[in-house]
Amino acid sequence: MHYTFDIEKGNFTNAGNASGSVKKTLKQLNVDPSSIKRIVVALYEAEINAVAHAYGGKIDIDIDGDKIVMVVADQGPGIPNIELAMTEGYSTASQKVREMGFGAGMGLPNMKKNTDKLDIQTELGVGTTITMTVFLKN
């Protein structure tokens, strides 16, 4: 099964909507609750980053029998140093974003912890594509 969602540019209020829809769908598909929890955390963080650090983009999700693959592709500045970005506590979030409680530098570490595979492709000035795979236990 394939699902697509748009991530609106600069729209913090709606960030998280795609994760919510995916959660509902996975429940309907009877995916086990512990996998759903991990998927939701990882997808939410990727969705928020596409709004906080880039100009929106899109989410593609493929679910087959034993795995879910989530591709979050944004148009944005790209990530100059992925290793640094992956460090817990590292954040370039704006003051405005920090006041809302984002910017702890925990999003990418959360994605790493909650997925079985995390791949980051990034091009400076073009955008970032995050591919996350979670193997489902059935």
Partner: peptide, 9 residues
């Protein structure tokens, strides 16, 4: 917590 990713994680 007031840090959203902390709560998320």
């Amino acid at each position: 917590s007031d840090l959203l990713s902390d709560v998320m994680g």
